[in-house]
Amino acid sequence: MQSHTITLNINEEIHIVAVKAADTLLYTIRGKLGLTGAKPGCLNGDCGACTVNVDGWPMKSCLMLTVEAVGKKVTTIEGLRETPIQQAFVENFAFQCGYCTPGFIMNCHSLIQQHPDADDQTIKEWLESNICRCTSYIEIEKAVKSVLNKK
């Protein structure tokens, strides 16, 4: 097993970590950096619970090798501080068990950055990447629209 010592930019901090080439970004940020906000839900790119942002775009961190993240800016839920979308999730009861929430918020956060004027179709296209099993999605829709409309 070959170990690579690499430099990662995560939440605007530089981290030097030793990883195997086969380690996924999810595995590394959770296991090596203790950033457990990104959740494993399927490890197969299907559920979105592990979504982080890479260079401002949503990324299922179970689908990315850690070594692929070298030279990129990774943001995890722990890197968000009192953003409007977090507050909107709270106010709109847009989560129940909370397990899908970090992934959903990171996807919403990226959407707000990339398409602050997103229409219903764009919102749907983006947010259908994540599964929430507790809410009805209406709460999440309200939360994301409350932030998009403000912009």
Partner: peptide, 11 residues
Amino acid sequence: AVDKVTGRAKY
């Protein structure tokens, strides 16, 4: 709530 939207909630 706050724990759940900041990734601090632990499972």
